[in-house]
Design a protein around this nucleic acid. Structure first.
Lengths: 215, 215
DNA sequence: CAATGTGAACGGGTTCACAGCC
DNA sequence: GGCTGTGAACCCGTTCACATTG
């Protein structure tokens, strides 16, 4: 039944997938989707889709499916997608530069408003349209650009310090690409994307099945 | 008790963290770690650490802890880290180039042996020490370099095709950074890193707690 | 006594299956 | 008839608490 009461974390993580999938449906061809279709499009099974959507309080129509536009709207709203959340990228190494320049961020409503780096050659410059500042100015940058999310892509040694500076400046959401344990207050949401670990997990399975090197 | 019988997926995902944490301990200072210490270093709680390690069949010593070197060795072995798994990066856009150049991969035992791109200017060239080939040559590349893992960082429209080409060439592990649903056979391990989705999840929580835009 | 190893309780998430409704 | 919405069963992973052991 109804209730935005409390959406399970696992469901929240799938809402973006549903939204993207719905974007691939052409409204002129069909004005409605079934849980089955949405399941195929999003790579999730149909029972899960229905249960997830039920948490939104979004009603489909039995025997018919979900009204396409309405569903998009509901999911967007649940995700808070009407807002725009400016991002600051901290650390402009390989990865940081790629992230600062990543169109997927802006497309999803998370414009990279500023970057921070220790390199004096970069500070004051504009890289791919993104102004670069000194770490010492982080607090000002956060205020100035109304930064909502900090992305950390510094060397491991600098990461904890940057995280603390972000928290100090009032940032409540951090996404880290650095392979270190970061400690932040409870009210700060931290998501870690750990590329080396991901590969090692793949490696585990290779090792387990093959036993041998090579392919 | 003993038994490499079957390590739970959740445990596998934490083994790399433990290994990294153990690397931060100086063996000259201490030859042993407790589950408590390892918990702090890896950002996991102690009970979980003990249960995880118990799956490895690795014995610590009650009242003492785990022997540092032995534990490192055991975890490395479980992860299959004695092997080296060459990687091919497919798609040399912003992100692809950063990944091809990412030292964290090589450091973790996953050297980027080759890259693939459609850009004729890049094909035949070497970017940051990585030779670039045409997509049509993917199969040869996989054989030649004994590629174990394919990283996909192409535009969304090309991703499924690349995935199929990788599978066709015999690759059994794929890591995708592309925001699309990829379909691969059951015996192929697929891990998806979806940056926009990650941000949207952060956005959800911002939205939920703040209600307002800005910071 | 200190710290491991582990059965048992717990909890969140997934799957099932079917009643309910258009 | 077809598809949603959802209680109930199930499964996996986490946490607890304590017996066990060097």
């Amino acid at each position: 039944m109804a209730g935005l009461g409390h959406i399970p974390e696992a469901t929240v993580a799938r809402l973006p997938l549903y939204l993207r999938a719905l974007g691939e449906v052409t409204p002129s061809e069909q004005s409605t989707v079934s849980s089955e279709e949405l399941a195929d499009l999003s790579g999730v099974n149909a029972a899960k889709v229905r249960k997830d959507l039920s948490y939104l309080g979004t009603y489909g129509t039995r025997g018919v499916g979900y009204e396409l536009d309405y569903l998009k709207f509901e999911i967007s709203r649940a995700l808070g997608l009407s807002n725009t959340w400016p991002v600051v990228v901290c650390g402009l190494g390989n990865l940081g530069r790629a992230l600062a320049n990543h169109t997927g961020f802006t497309d999803a409503g998370f414009p990279v408003a500023a970057a921070v780096d220790t390199d004096l050659d970069k500070i004051g410059a504009t890289i791919d349209g993104v102004p670069v500042f000194a770490p010492a100015d982080l607090s000002e940058v956060v205020n100035e650009f109304e930064i909502a999310i900090g992305v950390i892509a510094t060397p491991a040694s600098a990461a904890q310090g940057v995280a603390e500076a972000l928290v100090e400046a009032g940032v409540k959401s951090i996404m880290s690409f650095v392979p270190t344990v970061l400690t932040v207050p409870d009210d700060v949401e931290l998501r870690v994307v750990d590329l080396a670990t991901e590969l090692q997990i793949l490696g585990f399975h290779l090792h387990r099945s093959n036993g041998k090197a090579g392919m």
